[in-house]
Simulated scan of single mutants.
Amino acid sequence: MDCLRAETYVLNQLRRNLSPSLLYHGLHHTLDVVQQAGSLARAEGITDTEELALLRTAAYYHDAGFLTTYQGHEAASCVLARQVLPGFGYAAPQIELICQLIMATQMPQCPGDSHLARILCDADLDYLGRPADFWPVSQTLFGELAARGLMADETTWLELQVQFLSTHHYWTPTATARREAAKQERLAEAKERLESLGNSTT
């Protein structure tokens, strides 16, 4: 299992071929998820080297489906993983585990009882509880969706943010401890912004 070559391959593909209109789901997001997944895994007590390697590969490949499609990109990520990972020495059961982790990140997230899937899901949405960059990151997703005609205006976006933040929960104790309190603060801010917009239009 040559993880480094597998990572290098997908990084090169993402650098060269991702649409520049992917303001949120760009290479920077993938690298952030890789970093957060590793941090969460260590804090969650994952020490098995193979599990750590497969989680890392899944993080690198989890949004690679955006190379070919927007809707259903998780399944497309798995298609790519099944195509290329055998060439890097990954065995079929390892690839299937990677694909299970990738599919768990599909909205609404569904990691089940898999510890690794819960870690990847939390890494994927880590920014929800980050005070420093929640709003800048949120705006990139708004821009990405608006560019595709999937988001009408800022009011609609803030309504979606309030709904999403209200129903989202982290899956691991570590992410909950690190991010939940700040996420609730971002929810309060989103409600304030939405109320302010409503007042300005009346």
Rank of each mutant, 00 (worst) to 15 (best):
Y24A: 04
Y70Q: 00
L194P: 15
F134M: 07
L97A: 13
V34L: 09
A147R: 06
C110A: 14
D124R: 09
R178P: 03
L160I: 09
I102E: 13
C3N: 13
T176C: 02
C99W: 02
E189K: 13
T8V: 13
A76V: 05
R186D: 06
S77F: 03
E7M: 05
A146S: 08
A6G: 06
S77H: 08
C99G: 07
T47S: 09
A181G: 10
E44H: 14
R130W: 03
S200K: 14
L128E: 00
E185H: 12
Y9M: 06
Q184D: 06
A117I: 01
R5I: 10
W171T: 06
A188M: 11
S166Q: 12
Y9Q: 05
I119W: 10
L187Y: 01
V79M: 06
R5P: 01
A104H: 11
L27M: 15
Q106G: 03
L31W: 13
T202I: 11
D126Q: 09
E189C: 10
D48W: 12
T47A: 15
G38Q: 11
L52W: 09
R148F: 12
H28W: 00
D124A: 05
G129E: 01
A75R: 12
E74A: 12
L165I: 07
T47K: 11
G112N: 09
A146D: 08
A37S: 11
L18H: 04
A104Y: 14
D124P: 02
Q100Y: 09
Q109N: 06
Q94C: 13
P108R: 02
L22P: 01
C121S: 07
P136W: 15
V79A: 03
T105H: 14
G129Y: 01
P111H: 15
T57E: 04
D48H: 14
L23V: 13
L22S: 00
A92V: 13
E154N: 12
T68N: 15
K191T: 05
H62L: 02
A76R: 06
L158A: 12
D126G: 00
E51D: 10
L97P: 15
D63V: 08
I102G: 10
G65A: 14
S19R: 03
L85T: 02
A58S: 05
T172V: 12
L116R: 10
L97I: 15
K183L: 03
A182D: 08
C78F: 01
P20M: 02
A76H: 08
K183H: 03
L194Q: 08
D48R: 14
H25E: 00
D113I: 07
T30L: 04
A43S: 11
T47H: 10
C3M: 01
K183Y: 01
R5D: 04
G45Y: 09
T172E: 03
R118F: 07
S21M: 06
F164T: 11
R82F: 09
P136H: 07
F142Q: 05
D2C: 04
Y9V: 00
I102S: 15
L128W: 01
Y170T: 02
D2H: 09
R15W: 03
L55E: 07
L120N: 04
H62G: 00
R82Q: 15
S39M: 13
L54F: 09
I98A: 03
Q161K: 10
G143L: 03
Q36H: 06
G149V: 07
L125R: 00
W171E: 07
C99N: 09
M151C: 13
H29Y: 02
H25D: 02
L141N: 05
P86W: 06
A43P: 01
P93S: 15
R56Q: 04
N12S: 14
